[in-house]
Amino acid sequence: MIGDIATLTQAIVTGILLGGIYSLMSSGLSLIFGVMDIPNASQAVFAVLAAYITYWTYTLVGIDPFIGMVFSAIILFAIGIVMYKYMVSRVSGLMAFTLLYMVAMFLENTMIFVWTNLYRGIRVPYLTGSINIYGIYVPSDRLAGFLISVIGFGLLTYFLKYTYTGKAIRATMQNPRAASLMGINVNSIYLFSFGLGIALSGFAGAILGIIYPFNPTVADEWIGVMFAIVVFGGLGSLMGTFIASMIIGIVSSLVGTYASLVWSPLIAFAILVITLWVRPSGLMGRKV
């Protein structure tokens, strides 16, 4: 019986940590989708770019990945600003999606050209192995990812709730027209949000590169799950994205533990489809 509880606890801990990675990867997509209704198809590719930036600053210059990820977030913020100003602000809806998808393809193929298809990994010796808490194994690299995700979501929520810019972003999310009538510069809110959303991939990418081997094409494995999580959680709700990630992570782990990992994607997506059937706006989304 005790063995059973240990197995269950291990499965849930494993799931929560996997959920941490999912939520970190989806955070930027959720923010951009929520604020300006733009499905940013290039989000995962920017995470991979961040993984490369962190990898190179670590291998060539010896900068610790946790400093490297801040550095790549700043670079990505700048890229996001420029992209929004000169490309994204001029289009909307399906055009924006298509444009960003093309940006993703362009960036992915450029990275293949420059850095090839070889797999790389950011090897952080102090993050290999795990912490053993009463017989439950907590992998260090995944724990780091989870903590960054929790801190990130916490800061972001605080920022949106209590700062002036944050309040302006929320006002813009609810009704851009009314917000602009209240004297909010909607355009600069969009500009800032897009930059911030892309910058979040800076942290996600570094964690991605620490936990998994990566090459430019791994973005394709992620983007589908990221969209699913954001829609599942509900458009416009960061908390929804976080909870959706946890559900997907825990369900995958439980199915893997008590049945087989091959069933995990099927069951996770079944839950997602059923939820959206019952609640089309997602777990915590605005009413559609």
Partner: peptide, 17 residues
């Protein structure tokens, strides 16, 4: 003998078994 999805993101459940 057990399989897992090709793009698996976590093998802990299987390897615990």
């Amino acid at each position: 003998h057990e399989e897992y999805p090709k793009d698996v993101k976590d093998l802990t459940p299987l390897l615990t078994k």
